[in-house]
Amino acid sequence: MTTAVERETVLDVRDLVKHFPVRQGALRRTVGLLKAVDGVSLELRRGETLGIVGESGCGKSTLAKLLTAHERPTSGRVTVLGRSLHDLRGGELRRARRHVQLIFQDPYTSLDPRMTVAATVREPYDVNPDLAPRGDRDRLVRELLEAVGLNPDHGGRYPHELSGGQRQRVGIARALALRPEVLVCDEPVSALDVSVQAQIVNLLEELRERFSLAYVFIAHDLSVVRHLADRVAVMYLGKVVETGSEAEVYESAAHPYTRALLSAAPVPDPAARGTRQEIVLDGEPPSPVDPPSGCSFHPRCFMAEDGCARSAPVLEPVAGAGHLVSCHLARHPGGDGP
């Protein structure tokens, strides 16, 4: 495998913002802004996996839709293989967004119930005729089904005849048909049972090597993200609060939220009970419609000082160059604040 320096950047995200207007009343007046994604910058290189963790409402699903052009950003830029999605229109845009495909969370709702497995996987070829000549399509569909571990002879089945894991495999095959560079996986295994979850995680790893894919892997399950990710970004209320390599984030988390998140995740080992230091946060994430002033985490933060409510921290490097943290107190733990 080549080193990160040589590898090409396939996905570049700069200051991405998505605000949804909150409308109320008969006249549907805009009464506020839901800041789902509020200034996110990311970079993904070929063959790399970026894990994104965060709780519900942190904007990770909206981010997935923005990266795959299912939503248009309010501002900011998504660049795929050097081409900014926002400068493109029509056919050009369609060709560019092929490179970034989305794997959906719920394999029960992401397949058309009236289309067979083969028809679903074939659709990308049918709508993008330049991808493959008509005569080759059936063979390609069979190859894809085989690649995701499905029996190619079962292409005539309908989604309701499949188990959850099999459906998720169909969704993955459909995304692969376009030969993407990047798969954005939005909680791809959280609807599945543990034993099936492991099958899909293994499949994603196999495909990554076979097709040198890059993943943006979004999940709330910290252990699954850790298993797959090279780098991790932690999101809170629409912002990335910490990012770094897997080891940096999991072994030496610097942001108090990351530390609380890691300590709250149950460890499947009864022997470890009582040995780990647990940080239990109070309350729940506040509404992204009216986020707290200053550092948006300060009302729940166990380290917060007066200054945290006044000024918003920015992502800055801590120990390593690639380990960025957005916290006034992170660089000098227990220090004298901003």
Binding site: R94, S110, D112, P124, G171, L178
Partner: peptide, 12 residues
């Protein structure tokens, strides 16, 4: 529905 989003995603 998500399958409609998925179809749009592959370029339909």
């Amino acid at each position: 529905g998500e399958y409609v989003a998925a179809a749009r995603g592959v370029g339909a």
